[in-house]
Simulated scan of single mutants.
Amino acid sequence: MPAPIIKPPFTEETARAKVKAAEDAWNTRDPDRVALAYTPDSDWRNRDRFIRGRDEIRAFLREKWAREQDYYLQKELFCFSDTRIAVCFQYEWHDADGQWWRSYGNENWDFDAEGLMERRQASINDVKIAEADRKFRGKR
């Protein structure tokens, strides 16, 4: 049975729970599951890409996780209001050649009354790391 959707208005407790639920969902690397957290016409900016709707979200995530292998993400609540949440995050992954990366970023989220994300804006930077420098070893 899926967990209940956390709806606005957010409190510190529910905002933290929303961030943890997003982290857990993204770490499944299941595009179908992740896409259900967004409105059918959700509007995204991810780095330099603009994505609209669940079908494009699913396609984007399939491509992302095919490229970003052994992906593991951690999110942290930055701030929130009644219908918005901002997070800082970092994740590690390796490419097809075995090069490890740590990606750092910030996201701004806007939610509808039902707790689905209407808009997501993500700014992300990637840093090459040595395999020995991984922080999240064994987290999967």
Rank of each mutant, 00 (worst) to 15 (best):
C88R: 14
D48P: 01
I124Y: 00
E23S: 10
R140L: 10
P9N: 05
T28N: 05
V87P: 00
S123G: 09
R29P: 00
H94I: 07
W44E: 13
R62N: 02
R52I: 05
I5M: 13
S123H: 05
C88I: 11
E92C: 02
G98K: 13
F80K: 03
A15Y: 08
Y72F: 14
K128W: 03
D41W: 02
D110E: 15
Y104H: 13
D30M: 07
D55V: 03
E114C: 09
G138H: 05
A132H: 12
P4W: 05
K64H: 05
A17I: 10
D43S: 14
Q90V: 00
R54D: 01
A122C: 11
M117W: 05
E13V: 14
N106C: 08
F111C: 11
K20R: 15
E92Q: 07
T11V: 08
R134Y: 00
N125A: 06
D24K: 14
A96S: 12
A22V: 09
A21R: 08
P31M: 00
R120V: 15
A96Q: 12
K64F: 12
W65F: 14
V87Q: 10
I57N: 08
G138N: 05
A15E: 08
D48W: 01
A122L: 06
F78D: 11
Y91G: 03
R67D: 12
Y72N: 04
A15N: 13
Y91E: 05
K64G: 02
I124P: 00
T14E: 10
F50I: 14
R120D: 12
R33I: 13
K64A: 09
R134V: 04
M117K: 06
D70T: 06
D70H: 12
D24F: 06
W26I: 12
L77G: 14
I85P: 00
S103F: 01
K75Y: 10
F60W: 05
M1I: 04
Q121F: 05
R29L: 02
T11G: 10
F60H: 06
T14N: 11
N108L: 15
V19Q: 04
W44M: 07
S42R: 02
L116M: 09
M117H: 04
A113F: 00
W109V: 00
R137E: 15
K135P: 01
R29V: 08
R120F: 15
Q74I: 15
D32R: 09
I6M: 08
F89E: 03
P31L: 01
R52D: 04
K135G: 05
L61I: 00
V34Y: 02
F80V: 07
Y104C: 07
W44L: 08
A17G: 06
W109S: 00
I6R: 09
R84P: 02
